[in-house]
């Protein structure tokens, strides 16, 4: 069975990455921004795994595991921030988090 060409995976990763970045830059809701970041991380993982596959080494997968670990930490901290933010400002909108603006 022929392996899937790495280009395909890279295209898929790029697509996911772009969508994720769009989400981060355009949405107001912090939760959705967090989720978009997860999309970006997933795009990275696809690339890592794809190249791991093509080199026949597990190192890419190890990196993907670290990325997932990172995502877990990021989600925990991000959501913790979010709860603290919501408790103080009663909002989940990124636009209104502007205390440090000036």
């Amino acid at each position: 069975m022929m392996p899937i060409p790495p280009t395909w995976c890279v295209y898929l990763g790029t697509g996911l990455f772009t969508i994720g970045v769009i989400g981060v830059l355009t949405r107001r809701n912090v939760i959705i921004i967090l989720m978009s970041i997860e999309l970006i991380l997933n795009a990275v993982n696809i690339n890592l795994v794809a190249f791991s596959r093509y080199f026949g080494e597990v190192d890419g997968q190890i990196f993907a595991i670290f990325v997932i670990t990172d995502a877990a930490a990021e989600a925990a901290v991000g959501l913790g921030l979010l709860i603290a933010l919501f408790r103080n400002k009663e909002t989940v909108n990124a636009d209104e988090i502007d205390l440090l603006k000036w």
């Binding site: 899937i4 995976c9 898929l12 993982n45 795994v49 997968q61 993907a64």
Partner: peptide, 11 residues
Amino acid sequence: GVFLILRAPFL
């Protein structure tokens, strides 16, 4: 699912 296709069942 893509991971599975890429032979990374653990992942």
